[in-house]
Simulated assay, not measured.
Amino acid sequence: MSKRAKIILGIIAVLFVAVLIWLGKKNQKSIVTYETEKPFKTTIEKKAVATGKVIPLEEVALKPQISGIIDKIFVEEGAIVKTGDLIATVRVVPNIQSLNSANGQVKNAQLTFENAQVQFERNKKLFDRGVISRQDYENSQLNFNNAKQSLYNAKSDLDIIKRGTTAGLGKTANTNIRATTSGMIVEIPVKKGYQVIQSNNFNEGTTIATIADMTKMIFEGKVDESEVGKLVRGTNIQVSLGAIEGKKFPAKLNFIAPKGTEENGAVQFKIKADVTLDNQYFVRAGYSANADIVLEKKDSVLSIKESLLRFDKETEDPYVEVKKGEGDDAEFEKKTVKLGVSDGVNIEVLDGVTANDEIKIWNKASKDDKKEDK
């Protein structure tokens, strides 16, 4: 064999050995070690979150007692008013049928009055001559007075139909819309020239203005049926407003609806809570809000992070893997745990692990292993 052939064979042998070594290292199974963490003591609160809004506790809608057209509005939204303050006036647009009927009643009352007047004057002369008795005279006088009053009433009714008021009504004129309570004007949904409908037994009527006491606000929201059974009236809650960041207003739960309503396939129950306001902030009616309601609270209990938990595929029992041994001989042992209250991040452990146990952090290898993988 020539020298050149020997050199070629030597090179091939070296390359072959190098490839075998490389393949061996590549196929060699690396030992992965996991990071661990110990159970800890903390306070866990299980909360329910109700979404809703804040609204005034007392809110009154002013409605007219007569149909017509808004003639003038004397206040603006945001104004503070007292009971009896004039809010707006209504100009009456007479109903043709009612106007015609009222005119007819006036004419009939006028005829009755004139007839009674003639009879009274005739009987008065006869009584003065002693022709008729006092009783006949007094009866004709009574008929005359009744006819006079009926004519006055008919004319007043005609005035009310025409103008919405009549002489002698004064402040009771129903064309004047006055505040029925003290507070802030939070809404005026009408303008000058708007047609309004009176409030009666058959119609709610047109709202001219809404007055509310802005110093007394309540939270009104809804909670899911899975949580409503754990709520208790009188519970202290915290209300966060979307318009006021970083501020929580204390409130007290005062109402839990006895009947739920179905929304998007889930049954929701209405709740209400009295909100304690802060003079530093002006809370407007209708602000969107969330209420944090503590359903269960435990102080200083042994806990772990929920991410450490796994569930048995067959029994569905929760378990963790606890480290046994040290160094290369360390292994992880499966431990079934009994759980308590959870806040969604941390969960109470009632049994199965101790404060000194080192629990595997799933999918988190040690830093040394990460470097070797690279």
Rank of each mutant, 00 (worst) to 15 (best):
Q135R: 05
V345H: 04
K247Q: 15
V267Q: 05
S199H: 10
L86I: 05
L23G: 02
K374T: 08
K192L: 00
L99K: 13
R310L: 04
F249I: 12
V93S: 14
T336N: 03
G327W: 03
I237M: 04
E262M: 12
K335T: 05
K171L: 05
K364L: 12
V267S: 07
N108S: 12
N95K: 11
T43L: 03
G229T: 01
N346C: 07
V81L: 09
V190W: 04
Q105R: 14
L295G: 04
G10S: 12
S133N: 10
D369C: 04
S226C: 01
I96V: 14
K53P: 03
I96M: 14
T166E: 05
N100M: 13
V275Q: 01
L20G: 09
R178T: 03
L20A: 08
N100Q: 15
S300K: 09
S156D: 11
K371E: 15
L277M: 13
V294S: 00
A13T: 10
N123V: 04
V337I: 06
T354E: 14
K364V: 13
G104M: 08
E45T: 11
N95H: 06
V349S: 07
T354W: 02
I304P: 00
Y137S: 01
I237D: 00
A13S: 14
K374E: 14
G246P: 03
A257Q: 09
E331N: 09
R233C: 00
S140P: 00
I80M: 15
E121A: 13
E114V: 12
A102C: 08
G352H: 10
S98E: 15
S156R: 13
D224A: 11
E227D: 14
F269T: 05
P94H: 08
E314Y: 09
G234V: 01
K272D: 12
V345G: 07
G286T: 06
T235V: 00
K222D: 15
D369M: 03
V49Y: 13
I361F: 07
I96Y: 10
K162P: 11
E76G: 11
G130D: 05
A179P: 01
I244M: 10
S366K: 15
D373S: 12
K6W: 08
L158T: 06
Q119S: 15
Q268K: 11
E37P: 00
E296M: 07
I73F: 10
V60W: 04
N363L: 05
F16P: 05
I80V: 15
I177W: 00
V322S: 01
M214F: 09
K26D: 11
K191H: 09
Y34A: 06
K82C: 08
D274W: 00
G193N: 02
E227F: 08
K338H: 01
L308W: 05
V353R: 00
F127K: 06
A173R: 07
D357S: 04
S133I: 03
A251Y: 10
M214W: 06
T83P: 06
K38Q: 15
I21N: 01
L350A: 11
V196D: 02
E187P: 00
N145T: 02
A18P: 06
Q97Y: 11
Q119H: 11
F16Y: 11
K47N: 05
V49D: 02
G78E: 14
N201P: 02
T89E: 14
V106N: 10
E204D: 15
K46P: 03
M214R: 04
K25T: 11
A79N: 14
A355D: 09
Q119K: 09
M184T: 12
N27P: 02
K192I: 13
V322A: 01
Q195F: 08
R178V: 06
S366H: 08
V320M: 00
